[in-house]
Design a protein around this nucleic acid. Structure first.
Lengths: 138, 138
DNA sequence: TATTGTTATACTCTATAACTATA
DNA sequence: TATAGTTATAGAGTATAACAATA
């Protein structure tokens, strides 16, 4: 495998951290407005499909015991619900509610609303960017 | 400003969250190995140039009072040092030590080492990606 | 008066360990 | 035995409020 030039690599890391800083800036304001914390928002994002507590813990890179309290708070606010898994009675499946869907969309919108250059990219360039990012992650 | 097609936008958000998930996966293993936490690592990344406590709090999107403990831990491990600001005696300037520089490089390497497709992009494509990301953030 | 950094307090996040129920 | 989820506990992260030193 070829090693890209270190100069281009360094620029890439700068661009990516700049992107992250930009997204988090827009997100934090909305989290504040919605009285949500980053782990709760992260959990909402991970629930595009229903998932078990264990699966959520793996995605969070954290111990399973932490997920209990996070799901407790989301459930108390009506954003997710616990469901039984008919195939394995040990498993609790977490599903986002319609209110959770709306909150998820609102947070994504707030984060991406900070990308000032989004409207300046043509559809072709956007496709190009999507393709390059897909190949980068592999 | 033109609105990009919603399909391409949805793909973009999927690509970007996929990129973030990939980077955080590689980073978390190294944080564990180095006995560091995300806020401490974030602070090391923000210190490519010396910054005041206040500036760090702004970049973290958190209250200034939290930075005291974070810098305390980094300083105790020899990764940063507190310096006086000759122009304003209220200000404490935080500077990364050589050990902090090395740790920062190690963490960045661990995060980007998870990008499986990095070696498959040509130098031209890498430049293209960097350009598109720069325009996206604006 | 306003700002910088710190301390005190309370709630949340996180890892570890131990427990129950189920496979 | 192994796994899913919970509870208890302690250390770290966070916002709020109040404070001393400096501008």
């Amino acid at each position: 495998m070829r090693a890209p030039t270190s100069a281009a690599l360094q620029i890439l890391s700068t661009r990516i951290t700049g992107l992250l800083d930009c997204l988090s800036q827009g997100l934090h304001g909305e989290l504040r407005a919605q009285d949500l914390t980053p782990p709760l928002a992260m959990t909402l994002r991970l629930l595009d499909e229903p998932r078990s507590m264990r699966s959520l813990a793996d995605a969070h890179h954290c111990d399973a015991s932490n997920i209990t309290g996070i799901v407790d708070r989301l459930e108390k606010r009506g954003l997710v619900e616990r469901c039984a898994d008919p195939t394995d009675r040990r498993v609790t499946v977490i599903r986002r509610s319609p209110a959770g869907d709306a909150m998820r969309a609102r947070l994504v919108g707030a984060a991406f609303g900070t990308l000032a250059g989004l409207g300046t990219l043509s559809d072709t360039e956007l496709d190009q960017l999507n393709d390059l990012l897909a190949r980068l992650v592999g």
